[in-house]
Simulated scan of single mutants.
Amino acid sequence: MAQKPMTKTQLVAALAEKMESDKKSASAALDAITAVITEEVSNGGAVTLPGIGKIMCRERPKRMVRNPATGEQFEKEADKVVKMTIAKALKDSVNG
């Protein structure tokens, strides 16, 4: 059975322990990193987190989609999605 994902509280506690700091400082650091990533990706840029991956915004063109409940096809407007490419180092550490 899969583990539950780490919560923000657990992440802040683990970060504080690794930084040898208090939880307040770790929480502020995490919030700052989140704000920087959100701002950069929202403006169409990309952020590389060394050893983790790259977060970027990608535009999807207008396309035909199907409603699975009714089978009706309709055109969906172009939109943007956030994409993350995982770094090879992280893949290798998970697989071996």
Score class of each variant (00 low, 15 high):
residue 35 A to D: 14
residue 4 K to T: 15
residue 33 I to E: 07
residue 10 Q to M: 05
residue 44 G to C: 09
residue 61 P to Y: 00
residue 40 E to F: 00
residue 69 A to S: 13
residue 59 E to T: 13
residue 7 T to K: 13
residue 3 Q to E: 10
residue 61 P to G: 14
residue 60 R to Y: 13
residue 58 R to A: 15
residue 94 V to N: 00
residue 20 E to T: 14
residue 50 P to R: 15
residue 58 R to L: 07
residue 80 K to D: 00
residue 34 T to Y: 10
residue 19 M to P: 01
residue 23 K to A: 07
residue 36 V to T: 10
residue 50 P to W: 04
residue 68 P to I: 09
residue 66 R to A: 02
residue 29 A to R: 03
residue 55 I to C: 11
residue 62 K to R: 15
residue 59 E to C: 01
residue 9 T to Y: 05
residue 73 Q to N: 03
residue 46 A to K: 12
residue 90 L to F: 12
residue 12 V to S: 01
residue 65 V to L: 05
residue 4 K to Q: 11
residue 15 L to G: 13
residue 39 E to Y: 09
residue 44 G to H: 02
residue 89 A to I: 07
residue 25 S to C: 06
residue 15 L to N: 00
residue 25 S to D: 12
residue 19 M to L: 15
residue 71 G to V: 04
residue 95 N to S: 04
residue 73 Q to C: 03
residue 81 V to G: 01
residue 94 V to K: 03
residue 56 M to G: 00
residue 4 K to F: 13
residue 37 I to W: 02
residue 93 S to G: 01
residue 41 V to R: 04
residue 66 R to C: 03
residue 18 K to G: 05
residue 17 E to Q: 15
residue 2 A to Y: 12
residue 47 V to Q: 07
residue 38 T to E: 15
residue 18 K to W: 09
residue 14 A to P: 01
residue 64 M to A: 05
residue 40 E to S: 05
residue 72 E to M: 07
residue 35 A to I: 14
